[in-house]
């Protein structure tokens, strides 16, 4: 398993995508913006490139020839994507702290606060649970899987932003006291972990049936 992860980080992922979170994270410094875009760039840029590179390099054929289980190949791919998602989250948190130190004004949309990152975890949860099971139907065509999962993440975050603007109830939870924000964060982390497991189970079941 660790060998497969090593392979993902050494061979499959372009090193640029380890730097990208620090570049896209800096977009948190834009005053008053739709900050979910900062994390959506991961879905727009990193994931399609990651999957395209994997396909171009014939990664599946390489991996199945190694002495590993097919389910481990799926697990390694999910863990490597999750690692990059967490890297994007961590850098975004750092920039969000700087943002909140610099700018004292309220954002028209959701502030980059604790609840924002809870919703971001939920966004990635939704993204992952659609992306991986769709992709592992044939472990080859990634376009539809990336398109649908990114679309779902975009619609979800757009709805949250609109609710923050038009629903005082939602705004009071997401921009209210620290406890309510921490609850949103906890809910986000739980859904992120849960959907990662569901995505793994569904994907590995499907990948077992794929002819390489």
């Amino acid at each position: 398993m660790t060998n497969l992860l090593y392979k993902e980080f050494k061979l499959t992922i372009n090193p640029f995508f380890y730097i990208l979170p620090f570049l896209t994270g800096a977009l948190m410094l834009i005053p008053t913006w739709l900050y979910f875009f900062v994390l959506l760039y991961f879905c727009f840029i990193t994931v399609p490139n990651f999957f395209a590179n994997s396909k171009a390099q014939n990664d599946v054929s390489f991996s199945v020839l190694m002495p590993v289980r097919k389910s481990d190949i799926v697990k390694a791919r999910i863990l490597s994507v999750i690692s990059l998602e967490l890297l994007h989250m961590v850098t975004a948190v750092i920039y969000a702290v700087i943002h909140n130190k610099i700018y004292k004004m309220e954002n028209f949309f959701l502030n980059p606060n604790i609840a924002f990152f809870g919703i971001s975890f939920m966004m990635f949860a939704l993204f992952n649970v659609i992306l991986f099971p769709m992709f592992y139907k044939n472990a080859y065509q990634y376009g539809a899987a990336v398109g649908v999962s990114t679309g779902a993440a975009f619609v979800f975050t757009s709805c949250v932003e609109l609710l923050v603007v038009f629903s005082p109830g939602v705004q009071s939870v997401l921009e209210g006291n620290t406890v309510s924000q921490l609850l949103v964060l906890a809910a986000g982390i739980v859904s992120f972990i849960l959907t990662a497991y569901i995505a793994y189970r569904l994907s590995s079941q499907r990948f077992e049936k794929v002819d390489i």
Binding site: Y6, K7, L11, N58, D59, S61, F62, L65, M66, P67
Partner: peptide, 29 residues
């Protein structure tokens, strides 16, 4: 699989990577 060596359709994976990089990954398995 630890005791099997294969070659299916030539070495057509990670063709733009150096041999030493591929070996470094493969040997770990």
């Amino acid at each position: 699989k630890q005791d099997i060596g294969y070659m299916l359709g030539g070495v057509d994976f990670y063709i733009k990577k150096k041999i030493k990089t591929i070996t470094d990954v493969v040997k770990r398995f």
